[in-house]
């Protein structure tokens, strides 16, 4: 085991992936609690697909992927938030429309420029080889910004998640904090997408929160548990992917699924006895 770890850590790309991955997992888990509880999970999914389109575009134009994707996805976050705030029922459909369109456009751009190859597969399902040094620096910076903002605005985020109307009625600008949540999510998704893949990144957001809610009953406990779980699952996923050469994103998701199963089982047992 120790040998395996030393071997792992002797590769620069693994170390890079671990640093970025741990930070992104933390961000995703923190935001995930609010997104799941506010029923914004669809937004996460939509944003990752928009991100995929943006990445494809950046590749085709030979631009830095993150620098294109971050602003594009941030704008999309604004739009999706407005859509789901204004029309509860049609919102879902509208988000699905935007997300599948972005995916389709992305795929067409890719097949036109470089053809469907391993790169495409990596974008969709994630790879830890994808990151350059400048990507890593930008990713770390973005993740730290997300975490710091989350901690500073934790109480506000709780309030708008629990009861938006009350928060608004008592003089807090709830829309501002909804927008904050959406923007932080956008940044997290873009940064995590290369590693986890456009199709799988939203599970990084949803799984830890859902898993923690099986066992824990206060907001703080759920947030802390999600953060810890998310990091553990990510590291375990990387190890799994290294040993069996599975795609990274898929391995992380499978570990998350396993944890969800375990927590659900414990939750059921606790209820019974």
């Amino acid at each position: 085991m120790i040998e395996l770890l030393t071997e792992l850590l002797s590769y620069t790309f693994v170390v890079r992936a671990l640093i970025v991955g741990v930070l992104v997992s933390l961000c995703a888990a923190l935001l995930g609690v609010s997104l799941v509880l506010k029923r914004y999970s669809m937004i996460g999914d939509g944003l990752s697909h928009v991100g995929f389109g943006a990445l494809a575009l950046a590749m085709a134009l030979n631009l830095s992927p993150l620098e294109v994707a971050i602003p594009v996805v941030a704008v999309a976050a604004f739009v999706l938030l407005r859509i789901s705030e204004n029309s509860r029922i049609k919102g879902d459909a509208a988000i699905a429309l935007i997300s599948s369109s972005s995916l389709a456009i992305g795929v067409i751009i890719i097949s036109y420029t470089s053809g469907m190859n391993t790169d495409t597969c990596n974008y969709m399902f994630g790879s830890i080889l994808a990151m350059s040094k400048s990507d890593v620096i930008l990713s770390v910076a973005v993740s730290i910004v997300v975490i710091v903002l989350y901690v500073l605005f934790y109480n506000k985020i709780f309030a708008v998640t629990f009861d938006e109307n009350f928060t608004r009625a008592t003089g807090t600008n709830a829309s501002r904090y909804n927008t904050l949540i959406a923007l932080l999510t956008a940044m997290t998704i873009v940064v995590g997408m290369r590693m986890m893949g456009a199709l799988l990144i939203s599970s990084l957001i949803i799984f830890p929160a859902l898993t923690s809610m099986r066992l824990f009953k206060t907001f703080k406990q759920v947030v802390i548990s999600s953060a810890i779980l998310s990091v553990i699952c990510f590291v375990a996923g990387i190890v799994l992917s290294f040993i069996f050469s599975f795609p990274t994103g898929a391995s992380v998701v499978v570990i998350n699924l396993l944890m969800f199963g375990i927590f659900s089982a414990i939750g059921l047992l606790k209820k019974k006895y």
């Binding site: 509880l37 629990f162 928060t167 809610m213 824990f216 009953k217 206060t218 907001f219 759920v222």
Partner: peptide, 12 residues
Amino acid sequence: DFPASVGEVVIS
């Protein structure tokens, strides 16, 4: 199934 303790709700 919102996870929130009474204390968390009141202080909000």
